[in-house]
Amino acid sequence: MSIKVDNLFYTYMANSNQETPALKGVSLNIDNNSFVGILGATGSGKSTLIQTFNALLLPTCGTVTVDEFKVSSEKKKNKSIKELRKHLSLVFQFPEYQLFEETVEKDVAFGLKNFGYKNEDALKKAHEALLQVGLDESYFTRSPFDLSGGEKRRVAIAGIIAIDPDILVLDEPTAGLDPVGCQSIMKLVKNMFDNGKTIIVVTHDMEMVMEYCQKVFVVKEGQIIFEGSPNALFSVANEEDYAIEIPPLFLLADRLKKAGKNIDINKIHTSSDLIKELKEKRHG
């Protein structure tokens, strides 16, 4: 499934004395089965933008089109919102705060039941999702509140991926996790991408962006100011005011290239890519 955002405006507390515009004319396209990053400083409007994708916020003006679903300012026209939310799921920042059931499996099955699955089917799919996020049978009947932070987050994410959406939107999925937790979450997301899903992440973690994203959008003051590949962003980030930190790996590759090494920066996403590139060019 692809997303098309057309001239989107959103204003918080419209028609009051505290009205604050958050999005000012955003247009973008996200292709089917792509891995997209949305970047920008705090308060730039990224979170507002992703919340319009599954109609949690209705735009003040403009439209969001997700395949046959259309989200616009008129409430009456947005009939199939629930159907849309089945296909496009949003994982909020710190999703562990949305857990509430007595057991892990029940919590994961909760979303499925809301979307009309029978109890047994829901539990079966819940178990599959839990195994997918790396939580084995011993976790199924435990209380989600006894788990560690990282485990809680995996349960919450399992609750979303169990719904099996075509598009998965994650708001800072790795915030506040230890490095191992981060990696396991990102592996999981990558796995979903490899299975044909469209992934959209909002993040401040540039190393993650460099490693996984195919394309990034930079949001500033409610407008898209950059669109392109992560490495293209990093190579111009110094000159522009994008409020992002260039990852050390990119800086290293850039320095090496400037020092005369013959490497293709666009191919480098991880440190092993860089090593491979250096080795090849030495022998070649």
């Binding site: 919340q51 599954n54 949690l56 629930k82 939310r85 089945k86 799921s89 949003l90 994982v91 909020f92 999703p95 705060y97 949305q98 857990l99 509430f100 909760f110 979303g111 809301n114 979307f115 609750g159 979303i160 719904i163």
Partner: peptide, 28 residues
């Protein structure tokens, strides 16, 4: 909003469904 993303409808459904929706809000 997080629960709405999991398909909770706070304005529709029978008494039990609504009760469940409220529980999913109150406990967190």
């Amino acid at each position: 909003k997080a629960q709405a993303s999991r398909g909770v409808d706070f304005n529709k459904g029978g008494l039990f469904k609504r009760f469940k929706a409220i529980v999913s809000l109150i406990i967190p």
